[in-house]
Design a protein around this nucleic acid. Structure first.
Lengths: 192, 192
DNA sequence: GTCTATAATTCGATAGAC
DNA sequence: GTCTATCGAATTATAGAC
């Protein structure tokens, strides 16, 4: 547990600028095309500063890809609304900034990114699935979590990464109306 | 219409070897990391041959990423089974070779790959959605097609690209049992 | 802490011998 | 048709001046 604020460094502003620029570049270009030079230029600093602060490109990505889904407390949601609330929350979270898009882009091409993506969904989504799981065996909860992840990630890929025109144009409420029942069923319906 | 077999060239075997190696490399490494040198080495030929045959890297990718989903004729399927049949078919198609995985990987990081992915799903999946669409306005069919694509792509990302352990371990029949009703609903249920 | 200069690779693409 | 040799450009990463 971090009792005090963790190691307050002199120029945290520069570090934050680097991380923000890194997230944007990783999201826009993917891991390979996002160059340290471009990130440094966006942040208005010298490329060697990035190396000094984060060691290498992988270290920079690791620092830039911390992410909290901030999933709501399911106990406070009417049981019948859980699917819709979760879908709406994910849309918000995805559009709030480009971190999740960056993570997805990198996760697809880079092992480190893939592992980070796995950790995020396992540690943050699986507990919700476990709390709602109607099965006798608790092992099924991770199956349900991955089903939810598949639908959420698939819509994110279609809407924010591949940019399929109908997915981009679909109003937010409509996405919630279509995907909400799917997520609801994955979390609460009896196993087939 | 191609009346005769299209331009039979001398060493089509070499070309085929290059395309097979290219598909594997693009699938494993993505567009940027998949180098012409590595592809040529896998194919057991000289890198300059790749350039000679396909002009440049983009031409090679374009040739390696032709893909026919070979979707079944929906008219021949019992209406209630369409979702399950489509999901099972997509799983088959995805596991048959690595072309779809390569396409997805490249589509996420490369504009040319993204466009190819869009074309494949639009031209091959949208007609099926249109044939089944219960809405009065035909414009809704593309929305339904993209919903199906989102669930199929999401499972493919989870299972074949990011390799979420529960998605990888889930038996094929179970994936069909969970996703089949979802696809069925996206295609045939009344719009919400 | 910040920047310049540069080392060490690697890649796509070209030219040309055979 | 096939291969060798190489150019030119871009990248990560390092060494060191200020």
């Amino acid at each position: 547990m971090a009792m005090t604020s963790p190691a307050p460094r002199r120029s945290d502003a520069t570090r934050a600028a680097i991380l923000a620029a890194a997230r944007d570049r990783f999201a826009a270009d993917g891991y390979e095309r996002a160059t340290i030079r471009a990130i440094a230029k966006d942040a208005g600093i010298d490329p060697s500063m990035v190396m000094r602060y984060y060691g290498n490109k992988e270290g920079l990505f690791a620092a830039a890809s911390e992410f909290d889904l901030r999933l709501p407390d399911v106990a406070a949601i009417p049981p019948g609304d859980i699917g819709a609330v979760l879908v709406a929350h994910f849309l918000d979270r995805w559009e709030e900034d480009e971190t999740l898009t960056a993570l997805l882009r990198v996760g697809v091409t880079n092992p480190a990114g893939s592992e980070r993506m796995q950790t995020i969904f396992k540690r943050q989504l699986a507990p919700i699935a476990a709390a709602l799981c109607p099965d006798p065996e608790p092992g099924r909860a991770t199956d349900r979590a991955v089903l939810v992840a598949s639908q959420i990630l698939g819509m994110a890929v279609s809407r924010y990464v591949l940019c399929f025109p109908p997915a981009v144009a679909m109003p937010r409420e409509e996405v919630v109306a279509w995907l909400g029942p799917t997520v609801q069923r994955y979390l609460t319906a009896a196993a087939p």
